[in-house]
Design a protein around this nucleic acid. Structure first.
Length: 260
DNA sequence: ATGCCATCCAATGGATGA
């Protein structure tokens, strides 16, 4: 099973680039973030005609996540449990029935958190604490789990071209990285780092200031795997070239191949 | 660099993003 995550920065704006990447990369399952669409307005048919089931958890204007899958999906959950007052659409789960193995796939769009300190940063840290609780709960099932999405976390200095520029940013503050490590330390594996320890591998380049041309990027899109899922890991990669194509998102797809 | 660009919603500008 090829499983990918891709922050598309608006489904309407990516209505040509996303199908083009799907046709080329041929993933079986894709977690999308920032669809920036309500469920009713999401263009299901385009993807259904390509053989994908479509499950969305949308919101007007911003945020919004979705799962596209060529494989059967069961038990879809929308929204991160733990705060019934949270109106933001940032979490969707489904069990993907692979040929050899079912995998519980969680697609997530972790809050940005800037400016820090402030209420947006408080929301980010609270969201991460809720995610930790959800991960711990799912780990008890001992089924293969994959947590895929835009984490808005730069895990290490080697994951940024200019780490000094991010020292006071919500994506790289020590408290952010500590909260990310707390989730990892439940027993998750950063799939990309399991297969590639090379510094300077990025998944986001800002639209501004020629960030792409200067390779001024950061690695913030991650697939974290539970122990039973990490045992299925064959390989992982980042589709960097997508950033240089026509009308790109500011993020590129990150993917894993699983023996599932 | 104080958002330089991009997207969305709504309306010729504001909010948001990382």
């Amino acid at each position: 099973m090829k499983l990918a995550t891709f922050n598309i920065n608006g489904i309407k704006a990516r209505i040509e680039a996303l199908p083009a990447w799907l046709a080329q990369a041929k993933p079986d399952v894709v977690c999308l973030q920032e669809i920036k669409s309500v469920d009713e307005a999401f263009p299901h048919e385009i993807f259904e005609n390509m053989g994908f089931r479509v499950e969305t958890h949308g919101q007007k204007g911003f945020n919004g996540v979705a799962i596209l899958s060529r494989l059967p999906l069961e038990d879809v959950v929308r929204g991160l449990p733990g705060d019934e007052n949270d109106e933001q659409s940032r979490w969707i789960e489904a069990t993907v029935i692979g040929e050899a193995q079912a995998v519980r796939v969680c697609g997530l769009y972790l809050p940005n958190g800037n400016p820090a300190p402030g209420p947006k940063y408080d929301y980010k840290l609270a969201w991460m604490a809720r995610m930790k609780t959800r991960v711990a709960s799912l780990l008890k099932t001992e089924e293969p789990l994959a947590f895929c999405g835009d984490y808005n976390v730069i895990p290490q200095a080697e994951d940024a071209a200019k780490p000094q520029n991010w020292e006071t940013d919500a994506l790289f503050l020590p408290e952010t990285r500590a909260a990310f490590r707390q989730i990892l330390n439940l027993g998750l594996t950063d799939a990309f780092r399991a297969v590639d320890q090379t510094p300077g591998q990025y998944s986001f380049w800002d639209y501004q200031a020629g960030a792409w041309e200067r390779n001024n990027g950061i690695r913030i899109d991650h697939l974290l795997l539970s122990p039973q899922c990490a045992d299925l890991l064959i390989t992982a990669g980042i589709d960097k070239a997508v950033r240089g194509l026509e009308k790109p998102s500011d993020h590129v797809p990150v993917w894993v191949e699983l023996a599932a």
